[in-house]
Simulated assay, not measured.
Amino acid sequence: MKIKEIIVVEGKDDTVAVKNAVDADTIETSGSAIGKKVIEQIKLAKDRRGVIVLTDPDYPGERIRKIISQQVPGCKHAFLPKKEAISKKGNNLGVENATADAIRLALKDAQQESDEWREQISSDDLMAFGLIGGKNARKRRERLGDLLKIGFTNGKQLYKRLLMFKITKDEFSEAIRKVLKEEENE
Rank of each mutant, 00 (worst) to 15 (best):
K36Q: 13
E28D: 10
S32H: 06
T15P: 11
G35T: 03
T15N: 14
I42A: 03
V38S: 05
D13T: 13
K36P: 07
K37T: 09
D23Y: 15
K43H: 09
G31E: 07
Q41G: 06
N20K: 03
I42L: 15
G35D: 05
Q41H: 14
A24L: 09
A17G: 12
A45F: 09
K43Q: 10
I39S: 02
I39L: 10
A33S: 06
A24G: 10
I42H: 04
A21C: 06
N20F: 05
T26I: 11
N20Q: 05
E40A: 13
D13K: 12
S32P: 02
S32Q: 10
N20I: 11
G31L: 01
V38T: 13
D14A: 09
D25R: 11
N20Y: 03
L44F: 07
S32E: 01
K43I: 02
K46Q: 11
K46G: 02
K19M: 12
D25S: 11
E28G: 07
T29M: 03
A45R: 03
E28S: 06
D25L: 14
K19Y: 09
Q41R: 13
V22K: 05
A21K: 01
N20P: 02
S30F: 00
N20C: 12
T29D: 01
I27Y: 02
D13F: 13
E40H: 14
A33T: 08
A17N: 09
I39G: 01
A33Y: 10
A45C: 03
N20L: 15
D14W: 08
T29W: 00
I34P: 05
V38F: 03
E40L: 09
Q41I: 02
K37C: 10
A17L: 11
E28P: 06
V18W: 04
K43W: 05
A24R: 00
D13Y: 05
E28N: 08
S30L: 03
V22T: 01
K46P: 04
T29R: 04
I27H: 02
D14G: 07
I42W: 05
V18D: 01
K46E: 11
K36S: 08
E40K: 09
D23M: 13
D13I: 03
V38Y: 01
V16Y: 12
K36M: 10
N20V: 15
E28T: 08
A21M: 08
K43G: 06
G11V: 02
K36Y: 10
K12N: 11
G31T: 00
V22D: 05
D25M: 12
A17I: 05
I27F: 04
I34L: 02
